[in-house]
Nucleic acid binder design. Structure first.
Length: 271
DNA sequence: ACTTCGACCTGTTGGC
DNA sequence: TGCCAACAGGTCGAAG
């Protein structure tokens, strides 16, 4: 599930339930995530209140009184807020209980996710310090992309998926944005004009915002006792549609594997 | 300095 | 139906 819109939806879903709440108990059933959850985490979180919940790229940051809890959902992670004790399932690795008796549960079958804690300034953390601009901020614009791409040869798809450049554009939204902007995924960043970068930036922002709006319609589901997320499937133009007709020109969509990621595009509409 | 590639995991899917 | 390989929405860090 987790591309930026899903992470943003998760943030909006959990925030109202845990903001201001004091942590009363932490249960770690499986510490073996992408980085092992430190054994000290349970003690460190205990009795701290949540001051704010923020997002940086695809990282969720629970700002506590003395430090910050960093959460990444990886490929298959999920956070749910449960209002009563709910029997943990196979992949429910962490529970954080609050004074209001709600439980924030971290579920992640593939365990590519992460849950860490730091008492240093969180934006200086090694996982955050190198991150590029937020795609929905004003800093993400055509000039920025054009400037950042000088002297580089990478393909435009690899480029916009590079978190040092811009955060939160994953494989699905990269493919969709490039289709919308009519740019071939495999062309080099050095060949793209400022004007086309402007079109691409607009497409990325539009698609991410639309996806956030759609995810936002299911926020009530966060309180479902079974913890199922129930996201609407976002209507996708190219992702997962290789060989099927292009929705703009009817030509069969092409498939390409670049940097080990599947890409679908239309070689008639995109150039 | 830039770019590619392997690694981390488990669940699902599709071909034989 | 069963088995097995390939693949999946991420991203770090080593190697080239």
């Amino acid at each position: 599930m987790p591309e930026l819109p899903e992470v943003e939806t998760t943030l909006r879903g959990i925030k109202p339930h845990i903001i201001g709440q004091r942590i009363t108990r932490v249960i770690v059933r499986n510490a073996r995530l992408r980085w092992p959850i430190p054994a000290s985490l349970q003690t460190q979180l205990l009795k701290q209140a949540v001051q704010s919940v923020e997002r940086r790229g695809k990282y969720l940051l629970l700002q506590l009184e003395r430090g910050t809890c960093l959460i990444h959902l990886g490929m298959s992670g999920r956070l749910s807020v449960l209002n009563q004790r709910c029997v943990p399932q196979k992949h429910d690795h962490v529970d954080i209980y609050f004074a209001n008796h709600l439980c924030l549960r971290f579920t992640d079958p593939r365990r590519f996710g992460a849950l860490l804690y730091t008492e240093k300034p969180v934006h200086e953390h090694r996982l955050l310090s190198h991150l590029g601009v937020e795609p929905l901020s004003a800093s993400f614009n055509a000039d920025y992309l054009w400037q950042s791409s000088r002297g580089k040869k990478v393909s435009i798809k690899t480029f916009i998926m590079n978190s040092k450049i811009v955060v939160g554009v994953g494989n699905i939204y990269a493919a969709e944005s490039l289709f919308q902007a009519r740019i071939l995924p495999q062309i080099s960043v050095s060949t793209i004009s400022l004007e086309r970068y402007a079109i691409l930036v607009t497409a990325i922002k539009k698609i991410l915002k639309k996806a956030i709006t759609k995810g936002g319609t299911t926020l009530k589901d966060f309180m479902r006792s079974d913890g199922s997320p129930g996201y609407f499937r976002i209507s996708l133009q190219v992702y997962g549609r290789a060989g099927k007709p292009c929705l703009r020109c009817d030509a069969p969509l092409k498939f390409l594997r670049s940097a080990q990621r599947a890409t679908v595009y239309c070689d008639h509409c995109q150039f």
